[in-house]
Simulated assay, not measured.
Amino acid sequence: MPDEFAFLVSHDLKEPLAGIRGYCEILLEDYQDKLDADGRRRLDALIQMCDRLGASIDSLLRYCRVGKVERPAAEVDLNCVVEDVLQTFRPRIDSRHASVRVVGRLPVVKGDAVLIGEVMANLVSNGLKFNESEGPRVEIGCVPGQVPVIYVRDNGIGIAREHHEEIFTIFRRLHSRRAYEGSGAGLTIVRKIVESHGGRVWLESEPGRGSTFFFTLGPATSDATSPKPSAKPPHWGRPSGRRSGRGAGKR
């Protein structure tokens, strides 16, 4: 679907969707004495469906906007970007009793700080969300080289090899919304942002053994095909919890 067409359709859907949601709320408020429990339940369900569709439309709009606003490439200190992301996620990290650490110093790269921040936020968020460990861990680091390779590693549920490419397809989910919230567009947006910077993104993962996402922000080189973190933490093993999972879903 061409980005321009998707953008126009998504934009035009938002107004009537907001109207549908608004009428549902009016019915619940103004006619609550005429609605039985089943009627209220159905209207609540309709509002939830409107919210889910609205989230999907917002994700599609974000996807279409990547690369639309061209900002001059500037030096971006990834340490500052990650610091801002972790500050935003601090309540979530604390509530999950999670550990998010940066290994060493991250490089300064050329690019768009806002978009690169969105890449980091998506990967860190997924590392916390698709994680059934009692103590979720996320590690951010860099494999140095002519083209630095950034990695975000977690001890989450992992992703089966046959899904490694599939998860980058927009709105493709490997789990139900009840299991993990999200629109299913996060990794698609990550890939588009990375590729708009002349880089690429890939992963190493298997079910029950966590995931490591790698990305570059410049032309990939042959020696960056399958890097490993230079300071590899101790083996994390299988996550505890009710789901070992076939694969991580998408935001």
Rank of each mutant, 00 (worst) to 15 (best):
E75F: 14
E75L: 15
V76Y: 08
D77Y: 03
L78Y: 00
N79C: 05
N79A: 12
N79D: 13
C80N: 12
C80G: 14
C80Q: 13
C80Y: 00
V81S: 05
V81T: 08
V81M: 04
D84Y: 02
D84A: 10
D84K: 10
D84V: 07
V85N: 00
V85D: 01
L86F: 02
L86I: 04
Q87M: 02
Q87I: 00
T88A: 07
T88P: 08
F89V: 04
F89Q: 09
R90F: 00
R90G: 02
P91M: 06
P91S: 09
P91V: 08
P91G: 09
R92L: 12
R92S: 11
I93Y: 04
I93F: 04
S95I: 10
R96K: 15
R96Y: 04
R96H: 08
R101V: 13
V102P: 03
V102S: 07
V102L: 07
V102F: 01
V103R: 12
G104N: 09
G104I: 08
R105T: 12
P107Q: 15
V108F: 00
V108M: 14
V109S: 14
G111Y: 01
D112K: 12
D112V: 13
D112F: 02
D112A: 12
A113R: 11
A113D: 10
A113C: 11
V114S: 07
V114K: 11
V114H: 05
V114P: 01
L115N: 13
L115S: 13
I116M: 06
I116V: 10
I116C: 01
I116Y: 06
G117D: 04
E118Q: 08
E118T: 03
V119H: 03
V119T: 07
M120Y: 00
A121D: 00
A121L: 04
A121N: 02
N122S: 08
L123G: 06
L123E: 05
L123A: 04
V124M: 07
V124Y: 05
V124K: 03
S125N: 05
S125V: 09
S125F: 05
N126K: 01
N126D: 09
N126S: 03
G127R: 08
G127K: 02
G127W: 00
L128K: 10
K129R: 12
K129H: 09
K129E: 09
F130V: 02
N131Q: 06
N131P: 08
E132S: 13
E132P: 03
E132V: 08
S133I: 00
G135C: 12
P136E: 02
R137N: 13
R137I: 14
V138C: 11
V138H: 06
V138A: 09
V138R: 06
E139L: 14
I140D: 05
V143K: 03
P144H: 10
P144Q: 10
P144V: 14
P144A: 14
G145T: 12
G145F: 09
Q146L: 15
Q146A: 15
Q146D: 15
Q146K: 15
V147Y: 05
P148Y: 12
P148C: 15
V149I: 15
V149Y: 02
V149W: 00
V149K: 10
V149F: 07
I150P: 05
V152I: 11
V152R: 00
D154L: 00
N155H: 08
N155V: 07
N155D: 07
N155E: 07
G156T: 01
G156R: 03
